[in-house]
Every structure is written in structure tokens, then in C-alpha cells.
Design a protein around this nucleic acid. Sequence first.
DNA 1: AAGTAAATGCAAAAGTTTTGCATTCGTATG
DNA 2: CATACGAATGCAAAACTTTTGCATTTACTT
Lengths: 136, 136
Amino acid sequence: MKSISAILDTHGLRDTQSRRLVLKVLMQSKKPLSQKDIHACLAKEDRVVNLVTVYRILEKFRDVGLIHHSAGGVVFCSLEQADGHHVLLSCEECGVIEEYCDEELCKHEDRIAKRAGFFPTSHVSELIGRCASCHF
Amino acid sequence: MKSISAILDTHGLRDTQSRRLVLKVLMQSKKPLSQKDIHACLAKEDRVVNLVTVYRILEKFRDVGLIHHSAGGVVFCSLEQADGHHVLLSCEECGVIEEYCDEELCKHEDRIAKRAGFFPTSHVSELIGRCASCHF
DNA sequence: AAGTAAATGCAAAAGTTTTGCATTCGTATG
DNA sequence: CATACGAATGCAAAACTTTTGCATTTACTT
């Protein structure tokens, strides 16, 4: 597996401590994170990175294609896995967001894009509803 | 086709002018709108509804299942069409968001949900990339 | 037609994101 | 390996978004 520093390097980014910390959090997370989430997550382990810096780091990461933001401008910070497709299962009741990968869905969406004359760099699908434990 | 008032009534909502105005904007829109979008859209036709009220109306609409918010908390206000699936083609370059409907994708996602033990009430898929005119 | 609960608008509080500027840090060069 | 330069960071504050409290108005019931 590639080291954090190597990933930064590959993407033409300077190898700073803040970036390593943020990237590590993103890589270990199973679900999309907001800037605040990342900041809080780091603070919890006493690795403080200024919230403004988190914003700027994510902006940079996005520029180089390491992560993606969604339509509403909200960040979806799950790292792109090689060709994996992100399906988020988002529970309206308890707020939990699970992530799920599906290769076939990805291909299907590529067909849609082609048909619409669109050139996708990333996909996010979201199912909104109730998770198993909130459905009774 | 159902009248706006009838839709409100069906969902157990009081039939007020503000709600009719907001609902109409949502029904006529081809893409997801934010609270601000809706407010601006109404203001443009001199039908002023206080922004705070727009927030509250959308909250209510969501409670009764007329619209859905997405993972990040951002609103996706496209009205649910009967069994249609919303695919958003979101251009990172020019910011334009197109909407696209696909029945098959919808079915595929239902299968994913079933497999994951999830009970979806709505789907949103987003393709992030470049639209035809920004791709050169 | 009056009474009541719900909806609205306004002002302001709370929260989030962006900006400007001074300082620190990483890396390419000699 | 020291230096110099541009890039990244932190802080303070500005700008923007969302929520809350309260007084007033509106829609629906009887």
C-alpha cells in the first residue's frame, strides 16, 4: 500500500503534516466527512489542525481529484477507491450514513453519462430512507 | 393533474399562499433547489416569501415526504416523480446541474438497498464531472 | 362569525465558510 | 547543507447561512 506521503506526492501536493493528518482521517473513514467532522476527529486525538486549514486542504485535495464535493457544495470526502462506486445509505431517522460499493452501478451510470454527453470524474449515489434499525 | 392545494391537503398540510408558491416553484424546477434559490426565484416574480419561512416550509415538506434532503443536509428539492429516479449531472466547471431520469438505475438501487437491509424512500445519484460544453 | 392552533415575518443569535495578512515550513537551488 | 522562495498555516474578522424567540396574522373547526 502506498504511503500517505507518496499519495500527496503523486498528486503534486506538498507533504505537510496537516495534509498527512487530514488525508489519513479521510482514508480511514467509511463515510463522507464534513470539514468540521475532520477537524473534530483530529482534535479528539490531540492533533490540532486549524479548521480554516482543513477547508483549504480539502479545496486543494479536490483540485487534484483526491476527493469530491457534491452538488449542494457539501463535501463528500470518501477517497475514491479504484473504480469503486460510492453508494451512500443515508438514514433520515438516525442520521447515520453507510457507504457501499457497487461496480455494476458504476457502469450503468457511465452509460447514462455517455448518453447525455457528460464526462464524469466521479459518482455519488445516495439512498435516502431508513436503516435496518430505524425501520420498525 | 392534481392541484397544488390538493397536494398540500393530501399531505395533511395547511393550504397557505406561501406554501403554494414554494411548492409551485419546486414542481416546475428540473433541478434541486436550495432555500435561497427558491427565495430568489419567488422574489424575481415579486412574490416575496420570507427566507426564514422558506426554511420552515421545506422542513415541513420534508416531514411529510414531499421532498428530500441529502446526506450533507443540503436540500434536494426536486419533487419525487412517480418512481422516477433522479440522476444529477453536475458540472464542476460551470456549475450547471442537469437532471435525468432513469428507471433501470432506480431498480438497481432498490436491489442494493434490499441487500444492505435498507429501506429507501428516495434516491439521488450524482455524476460529477464536465458537461458537454465544458469538455474540450 | 369567533376561537384556536398553526404559520409567518422580523430581529437577532448561532453556526459555517471565506478572506486578508503575518508567520512558518517544505523544497529546489547553489 | 544553507539559503531563498513560494506555498501552507494560523489567527482574527468579515461574509454568509441557518436557527430561534416572539409578536402578529392566517386558515381551519365548530
